[in-house]
């Protein structure tokens, strides 16, 4: 079990009103699954993603990631967990401007105290996503799909337990979307755990399991036959 979430609640206070963004969520994800988390805006899917990504802490409930109880950790410990166990892929890529692809990929290792040849690892990660010939290119010299591949390489760098993608194809055209989704499928086939937060059913089609949220609760959770 790579993720185990029990009775997770997250409340926000806006003025005098309390919003229950997550209202008691239970969710378990096995190693090697490829899960789509879906829901309309306001369903709580972003809040769940933030907590799963250790960017936010629940108001109550427990979260166990790769054998560690993450709920209750302080900011510094969470930073370390994000560095070691989670690889993020964002909708708008979030590459550092004016910085070559290789240096962008290397970034997480700046904050890690893992030994080894950092450059060689970054090179391998870029090769893995098929950008061996674009290492010295800056983001403004890359297409949208290539940028997202660089971002995926960066996410893979620390060999994380969980690949967490937030609308990874939101800024891409149909053809590039398929390329990126095939990359995620390949990574899943290699045994990686992938969680994709999306509101597009076409993206969810690629996954082995679809979890739908509505009003801070899980509305449905079913295994599906993925598109290949």
């Amino acid at each position: 079990m790579i993720i185990r979430v029990t009775n997770l609640r997250r409340e926000f206070t806006v003025g005098i009103e309390t919003i229950h963004a997550l209202d008691g969520v239970d969710l378990s994800i096995e190693r090697g699954e490829m899960v789509a988390i879906m829901g309309s805006s306001g369903s709580g899917k972003s809040t769940l993603m933030n907590i799963l990504g250790c960017l936010d802490r629940p108001t109550s409930g427990t979260y166990e990631l790769d054998g560690k109880f993450v709920s209750g950790m302080d900011e510094k410990e969470l930073a370390r967990v994000r560095n070691e166990k989670i690889g993020f892929v964002f909708q708008s890529f979030e590459l550092l401007p004016r910085t070559p692809a290789l240096a962008n990929v290397e970034l997480p290792l700046l904050y890690a105290d893992q030994p080894g040849d950092r450059r060689a690892r970054a090179v391998r990660a870029l090769e893995r996503v098929g950008l061996a010939d674009r290492m010295d290119h800056r983001p403004n010299q890359l297409s949208g799909g290539q940028k997202q591949r660089v971002a995926v390489a960066r996410a893979l760098l620390t060999d994380p337990a969980l690949l967490l993608a937030d609308e990874p194809t939101g800024n891409l055209d149909t053809k590039t979307t398929e390329e990126i989704m095939r990359l995620f499928v390949d990574l899943h086939d290699e045994g990686r755990t992938v969680v994709i937060v999306t509101h597009e059913p076409e993206i969810a089609e690629w996954c082995t399991r679809v979890v739908r949220l509505r009003d801070g609760l899980i509305e449905s959770d079913r295994s599906v036959e993925p598109r290949r």
Partner: peptide, 16 residues
Amino acid sequence: TREIGLRKAVGATPSA
């Protein structure tokens, strides 16, 4: 700001 957000997401502590 976004760069700072990203750095934090990939594991930068506040002190870093």
